[in-house]
Amino acid sequence: MTTSTQNAIGTGKLARAAIYAVLLVFLVYYLLPLYVMVANSFKPLAEIQEGDMLALPHVFTLEPWIKAWSTAQIGVQPTGLRPYFVNSILIVVPAVAISSVLGALNGYVLTKWAFRGANLVFGMLLLACFIPFQIVLIPMARVLGLLHMAGTIQGLVLVHVVYGLGFTTLYFRNYYAAFPDELIKAAQIDGAKFFQIFLRILLPSSGPIIVVSVIWQFTNIWNDFLFGVSFADFSSLPMTVALNNLVSSSTGVKEYNVHFAGAILAALPTLVVYIVSGRYFVRGLMAGAVKG
């Protein structure tokens, strides 16, 4: 008994060391780009041009951040990324809210008020998750034109709601499928109506899946480039497209420090969302896996 335990620990130590070594390599591999971005965003341009991207800044400056945020040349005007950051917020917040609410309602109806053919409808909604962005571009442009929403923030909200509905419905349907039907029956006997049951019984128990839906939708919509570049006009460009314009502008000197600062600014909101609610994300994805 004792010897075998010692043996197990002995081989365990070796394996463990190997595992940690591999993990360490991956850690460096993943953190290196972040390090380069952060370190260089605080350097004056001259220091980067000397050639050592991996060095820490000799002269610490906030200049690139200020420039990227408020004075960099994005299009014609030297506005910085600020107005586009605001655009992205104006697109993301309503799009996430609307698609999550509709997804929750879909999930509620598909599981608790299932009608003949409910599974077929669900299957078709699921199909939306597999349609590549490019395929919907032209039909969507046509629809936006017909609705007179082309080039507007509202138009982009609509596009993201439609495209996200498949995912949010999937999340909520599967979550509510594990929600006991007897609770709905009990609420019916208590006299609760369709929306009362949803608001008073289901929604208060949906915390984890709401977080999953919000994180997923927020990340996808914030990071979206293709819909933004296709359907926005200059006044409604989202952050991602503006960042691209900043980085790929062909005139003048390439201001790498400003580009790095801008890229971090563009990534910051999703990072914040993950840090704030990440633990719920894992919990939500695991919800229903174990009873109780």
């Binding site: 029956k185 009990a186 609420a187 006997i189 208590d190 006299g191």
Partner: peptide, 29 residues
Amino acid sequence: HPSKRDIAMVFQSYALYPNMSVAQNIAFG
């Protein structure tokens, strides 16, 4: 409608509303 039949039901799984206290559960109807 079930709520209009002058009946009350006790379920196998008890079907207590998980987000409400005992008092709220009893008073919900």
